[in-house]
Design a protein around this nucleic acid. Structure first.
Lengths: 217, 217
DNA sequence: TGACAGCCCTAACGATCGTTAGGCAACCCC
DNA sequence: GGGGTTGCCTAACGATCGTTAGGGCTGTCA
């Protein structure tokens, strides 16, 4: 292994070592899963000893948290405010969809880890991450509901539509390949079109009245 | 632990023990991940010794394969043929979407494992599973393309639309809760409506001409 | 020049990992 | 009632797990 050729004791650029390790961990956690990568394998790939990792991180789980946190923080502090920006409801929602998918393209490793390895976090850390996601989901549902009230969207169930949109825009996370037919920007544009088209087309009939008012789902 | 009270040597119903173990493994793999569940933990929950599991399965990975295989086999032998049934393109596609989501509801543990733990399979077993999924994806894309030719659908890129549909209908896999607001059948109906609505609404403009013809993505 | 932090090392801990060897008791069929 | 199969057991293997203790080298800064 020994990926880093500058192992001869040089200090390299200050502080960047830690983020290098986080990026490396993201990639390895994505490929083999959190429990599938040992501290020794991580250290090997970084050109160091397992014990040395504990100079940068208190535990393996803290390392996992670092890989996940970037994704969820950006979701709330970068993408979500786009819904408060200028433009019609459709334009703002399209901007969020594009930003979301583009972010996936730029942080593929972290996104996959954030999607699959949450269960390895301790209960309180898990809760912190999940509250970010709930905020995001609810904000989208609210935006759709507001678009319906404004007469711009046509949608029988904004909450379910919010979930559906998240299902859709998280999809490329699973299959996007930088060497594939479409760039992430092209995918982002087309998915944004699909979302808007979905909400602006006239609604079709839905069987049964199903509008109870409890939390979630 | 010791879940099974009939541990006194009774033979119970023939052959069903193995599928009980598979169902148990699905649940535990889903909760803690493949690498997060040891053979001893599995055996404990089943009320037996770790070594006894090897009477039913040659290895831990074979056990994982069993949990995953049900999902992918059913996808191809149960859901996919619905596209060859009677009805319009829209009706057939809606039937597939409903069957797909309903199947997720009935096999939640296995679906989540099948979605996250593929990487733990050996290369040849991984390839077998992935070829199922490729078939499924391509069949859906072909169905959309045929619907477009028949003048029933309006869609600029059937291949991407197929991916988007899969992204959408695999979504409930991640968040469906039997105790939630909607039953899986209600979700299936509404998602089927969304898919059809998406394909039958007039297409919106898409920037740039992007119709290269290589494989995948 | 000396104190000090940053970064990495060797060595080892107890626990847990997947797996194998070999045996014992209860059932089925002839 | 003897042979075979099924389903579980105890005991143990070598490897690997996350983590800790303690030491050493290299730079910066007073």
């Amino acid at each position: 292994m020994n990926a880093d050729p500058s192992q001869g004791g040089r200090p390299a650029r200050a502080g960047s070592r830690k983020s290098e390790l986080i990026a490396l961990a993201s990639r390895m956690f994505r490929e083999h899963g959190y429990h599938g990568v040992g501290m020794r394998a991580l250290a090997d790939a970084a050109g160091m000893q397992a014990a040395s990792l504990y100079h940068h991180f208190r535990s393996k789980e803290e390392l996992l948290l670092h890989t996940i946190y970037v994704v969820d923080r950006d979701m709330v502090v970068e993408q979500m405010p786009l819904l408060d920006g200028p433009g019609s409801h459709a334009e703002r929602l399209a901007a969020l969809v594009r930003a979301h998918i583009t972010h996936i393209g730029a942080n593929r490793d972290a996104w996959l880890v954030a999607g699959r390895e949450l269960r390895a976090l301790s209960p309180e850390r898990l809760e912190a991450v999940q509250s970010y996601r709930r905020d995001y989901q609810r904000r989208i549902a609210r935006h759709i509901a507001e678009g319906v009230e404004a007469g711009e969207f046509d949608c029988p169930d904004p909450r379910l539509a919010g979930l559906a949109i998240l299902d859709l825009i998280n999809g490329p996370n699973e299959w996007f390949d930088p060497a594939g037919r479409l760039t992430i920007e092209e995918i982002a544009d087309r998915y944004a079109d699909m979302v808007v088209r979905q909400l602006t087309a006239p609604a079709r009939t839905v069987p049964g009245g199903l509008t109870t008012r409890d939390e979630d789902t």
